[in-house]
């Protein structure tokens, strides 16, 4: 602090009244301004001059919009899965033949869970779209013993591989609800005894369900909700901030598509993505 006075005379006095270009503001101040602007304002701000362009570009982490994944009749027949990217207004297709006759169950952290007949689960990695394995379980009586069977199918396998587990402690276990995946383990509840839970080896997957959105605002974020998943994102180009995007029309024929907290109104999409007759769609992480 003792050096303070010595530097006094070396500084050029600041003259007020002289017009100075705001582009000469220190980077840290431009940064503070940047973080208070939404993405469309920042795009225009970056078009002002070269310095602002490079500053804004260096700060601008452009995020991608989540995609919407459809359950369609194509999938039921052929395992063709259709995606929609709302920021581009474009559809994409991919197929996993094993997924025919399945329904999307949920989406989380880049993983998808499909189910068939309620008790066969298909774990699918989103990017690239790959079936990792399918798992199912059931209970049967064999040689007078209660056995739990777990069937596992890997892509390329001719058929399911079945493992049978016998309850050694004599407790009757009958597969009821499940399998359910939680905290790194598959669980299966017993039909006969509500206190009994079957636990199976870890697979990296977690389930999530739609959350009710009842907020005054989202602090500039965008939330994508569907019946089976919800994803939030910020700073996505061509996607409204502080809004909730739905997976289908809220009001038939009114083409409402996302709800903005900025003006408290429903808005139509860039391009209609809802096709009549589609029952289910799930937001997934972009590739």
């Amino acid at each position: 602090m003792t050096g303070r006075k010595m530097t006094r005379k070396t500084h050029k006095p600041v003259r007020v009244g002289e017009l100075r270009a705001w582009s000469e503001l220190p980077i840290e101040l431009l940064e503070l301004i940047f973080f208070r602007l939404c993405i469309d304002d920042n795009v225009r701000f970056s078009c002002v001059c070269k310095k602002l362009r490079s500053t804004v570009r260096s700060l601008c982490v452009v995020n991608q919009s989540p995609w919407l994944l459809y359950l369609s009749s194509f999938q039921l027949k052929n395992g063709i899965i259709r995606f929609f990217d709302p920021s581009q207004g474009k559809f994409y297709f991919d197929d996993i033949p094993e997924l025919r006759a399945t329904r999307i169950h949920c989406s989380k952290d880049g993983w998808l869970l499909f189910s068939q007949l309620g008790d066969l689960l298909y774990l699918v990695r989103q990017h690239p779209l790959t079936l990792i394995f399918a798992i199912g379980m059931g209970t049967g009586r064999d040689d007078g013993y209660e056995r739990v069977s777990i069937g596992i199918y890997y892509p390329g396998d001719a058929w399911w591989t079945t493992f049978k587990y016998q309850n050694t402690d004599g407790v009757q276990f009958h597969c009821g609800v499940g399998p359910i995946f939680c905290n790194g383990l598959f669980y299966c509840f017993s039909d006969l005894d509500e206190k009994l839970v079957g636990v199976f080896p870890p697979m990296n997957f977690r389930a999530v369900h739609m959350v009710e959105v009842e907020m005054e605002g989202l602090n500039g974020a965008t939330v994508f909700v569907s019946s089976h998943s919800s994803i939030s994102a910020t700073n996505v180009p061509r996607i409204s901030r502080n809004s909730v995007y739905f997976s289908k029309y809220r009001r038939y024929g009114k083409s409402s598509y996302f709800y903005s907290f900025d003006d408290c109104r429903f808005h139509p999409a860039i391009q209609r993505h809802e096709v009549p007759g589609i029952e289910k769609a799930v937001w997934i992480e972009p590739p």
């Binding site: 017009l19 100075r20 270009a21 705001w22 582009s23 301004i33 602007l37 939404c38 304002d41 225009r44 701000f45 078009c47 002002v48 001059c49 602002l52």
Partner: peptide
């Protein structure tokens, strides 16, 4: 800056393109 065009921002803030 909010809602302004680059031209308006330049004018407001004395910045030459």
């Amino acid at each position: 800056i909010r809602g302004r065009t680059p031209d308006q921002i330049r004018e407001n803030f004395n910045i030459n393109s």
